[in-house]
């Protein structure tokens, strides 16, 4: 890996997320996981895996695919 991939990041609005997990099914880099705590509606929202928990760099490229499929517009995407 010499070429540096684009770096991105997403934010998830926990209260808008309804736990449909469509975003997880389409993310090409496996950067989204399921949070272990319920939101107020009683769904387990998703959370961004920034890689730090595995001692890695985030693999998210900011491709927006997750946000395009998110029915509840819970995701915002940032890219460098």
């Amino acid at each position: 890996m010499t070429k540096k991939a684009k770096k991105g990041r997403i934010t998830v609005d926990r209260e808008f997320c309804k736990g449909c997990y469509l975003c997880i099914s389409v993310c090409p880099t496996g950067s989204i996981g399921i949070s272990g705590t319920l939101n107020q509606k009683g769904y387990y929202p998703v959370e961004f895996l920034d890689g730090k928990n595995q001692g890695e760099e985030s693999r998210c490229t900011g491709c927006t695919t997750c946000a395009i499929v998110c029915p509840d517009v819970a995701i915002e995407v940032y890219r460098e």
Binding site: G8, R9, G62, T64, A67, I68, V73, I75, E76, V77, Y78, R79, E80
Partner: peptide, 13 residues
Amino acid sequence: MEKKVFERPRYLK
């Protein structure tokens, strides 16, 4: 510089 590339559209409350 980091840019926001996806957000809620203006006409969606």
